[in-house]
Write a protein that binds this DNA or RNA. Structure first.
Lengths: 145, 145
DNA sequence: GTAAGAGCTAAAGTTCACTTTAAGTCAAGG
DNA sequence: CCTTGACTTAAAGTGAACTTTAGCTCTTAC
């Protein structure tokens, strides 16, 4: 317990500046030594691991701060608190995986058929993906006319 | 053929400003009308679709520009050119999918066992992932001691 | 006790991928 | 011909997620 910022940075695999930044953003918390230096509870490592995982799932720090607000205010979160949090990311993660798999399959079918834009190609029948991320997410769909 | 910037933007689902930006970045090309306005060949739509797909796979515009440099200089790319390109993204895409699946499974096993940090938990035995993205990518691995 | 290295703050800087702005030009219908 | 809306440029602005800088202070090992 009572880790310095350097120790946390080292163990968590990010820079001390990132830890100060996360703190300023209200994502993590630290106590202070008599001299005013940050001192961390070991639990912060788990929290940081969660933050990084959430980022990989595609959440912004804003989203993450929001999610973390569901954790108990001033007490150390329990296993079930963490479990609830992980669970809430599951659908998002599933969507991302599905999205990637669809993209992979489309790329595959294109490599196979060599068309990439004909009406007969899988890529030209977007009914499933096109709307998922607004007008930008059209993958490999190009409608030749 | 000979689409205006507005038409391309509309069909590709992005803003005209993005098209000008891509052009400045050397990702796409346009001819000009007598009056100096951009005129696009329909093929640019496919190219844009590829660029967006590549971005979803996690490539930066720099990476993409690099990849596009393998396309024939001043002639319209053939289906097999595109196929080669898609193929080259496949491993990256596979890695991203694997990564996401691993994260999902880990979150699952955590929800199941409720530990999240004990040495007995799946999360504590990272031999596979930890090195994949440098020291930052430690997922949910926290080594309590 | 002291020197070196780790930590402190606030503010400015960085990169990525664009968007916005300002001041003007082009194209097409009536 | 004229108006309107789409287009042009260069340059500045944006937001996310940090990092760097400058000028200090703290902590620790000798």
């Amino acid at each position: 317990m009572n880790l310095s910022i350097g120790e946390v940075a080292e163990r968590a695999g990010l820079a001390p500046s990132a830890l100060r930044f996360y703190e300023k953003e209200g994502l993590i918390h630290s106590d202070r030594s008599d001299g005013g230096q940050r001192r961390y509870h070991r639990d912060v490592l788990r929290l940081i691991a969660f933050i990084r995982a959430a980022q990989r799932v595609g959440l912004t720090l804003d989203d993450i701060r929001e999610a973390l607000r569901t954790l108990p205010e001033r007490k150390v979160p329990t296993a079930s608190d963490w479990a609830r949090l992980s669970k809430s990311w599951r659908p998002l993660l599933d969507r991302r995986i599905e999205e990637m798999e669809r993209l992979r399959d489309r790329l595959d079918s294109c490599i196979g058929c060599g068309c990439l834009s004909l009406k007969t190609c899988a890529l030209s029948n977007p009914q499933d993906v096109a709307a998922s991320q607004g007008p930008g997410a059209r993958w490999l769909i190009v409608d030749d006319d």
